[in-house]
Amino acid sequence: MGERLSGEGLPARRRGHPGGTALGSAPAGPDTGFEARVGAALRGDGSGGVDPEAERRAVAAFRTARDSGQRRARTRRRDDWRPGRPRGARLPVRTTLSVFLASLTLGGVAFATMGAPGFDGHDDDGGGTGPPRTPPPASTAPRQQSAGPDRTAAPSAGPHHPGTAEDMRAHCRAYEQVRGRGRALDATAWRRLVAAAGGEDAVAEYCAARATPSAQPSHPGNGTAGGTAGGGGGGSDHATADTSRGGGGSGPKAADPERAEGKK
């Protein structure tokens, strides 16, 4: 091997060199001497070294960089050519994969953590009620997003989450419109609403109960009239507005409970 090496390198560099007679070993391979010659040719080995002017410019750039204190810049991954990492080209793939897997794992853990109380709360709310509650697993995340507020709002009637309460009122209004229209009630949102109310028949009452308490925080001026009995101008206006806005086109049965609640 070593003998072959010396036979390849020397004659390729200087073909006129006396050492080139060792080229008797050239038939060892079609690439060997040729490869060296191509390299020497393209490097311009025979044309007398580097351009001094270009070298001067490079050195000037070096001096500028050195004097401006940029030499201690951070080493990026692409600047690290230490031989200790021969598989450098593959490292990013592996790193990317690890990060991806880790994010999957963490995401799964977070997802599972979120899901656990949601199911509990749901059982508390609608435990033992008739409506079929077998949603696909994918719907668990949206489910307990609103299941949480439900749980807190139902017993305490505290309007801690006006936004979600607003959603629920919207659901109530829409519910009245879709009721009796075939399978629309099979949709997850309705099943959730029905389950939260504790049965299909209880939805109207449930919605009515939810309409009033959330009317309070939206009218701070009415705050002294605590409780549903207040029935101040603001409160009832709001409830009426809700009903008229959402109940357009719905049957009288739909608007009744809310109106009754508003008048109370």
């Binding site: 201690r72 810049a73 080493t75 600047d79």
Partner: peptide, 11 residues
């Protein structure tokens, strides 16, 4: 190369 020489690590 001159500018980033400080970043380079290797032989």
């Amino acid at each position: 190369i001159a500018r980033d020489l400080g970043r380079f690590k290797g032989d």
